[in-house]
C-alpha cells in the first residue's frame, strides 16, 4: 500500500515537473515574442507595409492626390518597354563596377597591406582616414566632390600641374566621364567600409596558418590567395552584398553630384523613381519601377548570399 502511494506520488511529481517545464517553456516562448515585438512592429510598419503599399500603387495610374485608376500591369509594361527607363537600370549595373568591384578588390589589397606593412600608429591613422567617408554626411561629401571635379577644381589643378592639362574637363558635366566620376565618389565612400571589414576578418584568421605557410616557403602573394582570401569568404560576401545594394539603389551621391545629368547619363533608378513620383506625379509608374528595382536587388544579392553560405557550410 505504502509502496503504491510512493509510486503514485513519484508519478505525480514527475508529471508536475513536466507540466512546470512545459509552462516555463511556454512562458519563455512568450517572453521571446515580447522581446521581438517592437522590432517586428517597426519592421512591419516601415518595411513591409510600405512594400505592400508600393506594390498596390504600382497597379494604378495615380498622381498622388486624385482618385487612382486601376491599370493592372500596364506600369510594369512601361518599365520594360521604355528605352529611357531601361537605360536608367543599365546605369546602375555599370555603377556596380565602381561601387562594388573596385572597393571590394581594393579593400582586400589595402587591408592585406595594412596588416603586413602599415602597422602601429600609422595603421590607426590610415584606418581612420579610410573610414572617414562613412562618417561624413554624403550630402556634404557630394558637394565637396563637386568642387574637386569642377573645371577649376583640385583634380584639374593637379592634372595641369603634372603636364596633363590637355585632358582636364568639367568631369561631372561630361557625357563620357560623368558616370565614372560619380563612380569614383562611390569608391571613395565604400573603400573604407570594405577595408575595415576585411581587417576585422583578417584578425580572426589563425596566425598559425600564416606561420605554417611561411615555413613552407609561401610568398606574400601565395599567402594572400591561399590563406587570406579563403579566410575572408564571409566578409567578402558581406562587402559584395552591401556594395551591390548601394550601387543598384544609389540616390544621394547621384542627386547631389549630377542630379542625373548631363542629359540622362547618370540617371539611376532611385533618382528616376523620385522624379517620377514627385515631379511627374506618376506615383503608379514610380512604384512599379521601385518594385522592379527591389526584385533586381534580390536577383543580384540572393545568389551572392547562397554562394557565401554554401562556402561557409563546406
Amino acid at each position: 500500500m505504502s509502496e503504491e502511494v510512493m509510486v503514485t506520488s513519484r508519478r505525480e511529481l514527475r508529471a508536475g515537473r513536466s507540466t512546470l517545464r512545459a509552462r516555463r517553456g511556454v512562458a519563455r516562448g512568450y517572453a521571446g515574442w515580447v522581446f521581438l515585438a517592437p522590432a517586428m512592429v517597426a519592421y512591419g510598419m516601415f518595411v513591409l507595409w510600405p512594400l505592400i503599399t508600393s506594390i498596390r500603387y504600382s497597379l494604378y495610374n495615380w498622381d498622388g492626390v486624385s482618385t487612382p485608376h486601376w491599370v493592372g500591369l500596364h506600369n510594369y509594361a512601361t518599365v520594360f518597354s521604355d528605352s529611357t527607363l531601361l537605360s536608367v537600370i543599365g546605369h546602375s549595373f555599370q555603377l556596380i563596377i565602381y561601387f562594388s568591384l573596385i572597393p571590394v578588390t581594393l579593400g582586400l589589397i589595402v587591408a592585406a597591406l595594412m596588416r603586413r606593412v602599415v602597422t602601429g600608429k600609422l595603421g590607426t591613422v590610415a584606418r581612420t582616414v579610410l573610414f572617414l567617408p562613412q562618417v561624413v554626411p554624403l550630402v556634404a561629401a557630394g558637394i565637396a566632390w563637386n568642387w574637386v571635379l569642377s573645371s577649376n577644381g583640385a583634380l584639374n589643378q593637379i592634372l595641369s600641374a603634372v603636364g596633363l592639362g590637355g585632358i582636364t574637363r568639367a568631369w561631372l558635366g561630361d557625357f563620357t566621364f560623368a558616370l565614372p566620376a560619380v563612380g569614383v565618389i562611390g569608391v571613395w565612400v565604400l573603400l573604407g567600409f570594405c577595408t575595415v571589414l576585411m581587417l576585422v576578418g583578417m584578425s580572426k584568421i589563425d596566425p598559425a596558418l600564416y606561420e605554417a605557410s611561411q615555413l613552407d616557403g609561401a610568398g606574400p602573394i601565395r599567402e594572400f590567395f591561399s590563406i587570406t582570401v579563403p579566410g575572408l569568404r564571409q566578409e567578402i560576401g558581406v562587402c559584395v552584398t552591401v556594395t551591390v545594394i548601394a550601387a543598384l539603389s544609389a540616390f544621394d551621391i547621384v542627386y547631389i553630384s549630377t542630379s542625373g545629368g548631363p542629359g540622362t547619363q547618370t540617371m539611376v533608378p532611385g533618382l528616376e523613381i523620385y522624379q517620377l513620383a514627385f515631379y511627374n506625379r506618376e506615383v503608379g509608374l514610380a512604384s512599379a519601377l521601385a518594385v522592379v528595382l527591389m526584385v533586381l536587388v534580390l536577383i543580384c544579392v540572393l545568389p551572392i548570399q547562397w554562394f557565401v553560405n554554401r562556402g561557409g557550410r563546406q
Partner: peptide, 18 residues
Amino acid sequence: NGSIYAEAWTPAVQKLFA
C-alpha cells in the same frame, strides 16, 4: 507643364551643348 523642364528640356539642351 510640370515635368517638361526636368524630363525633356534639360536633358535635350545638355545633349545639344555636348
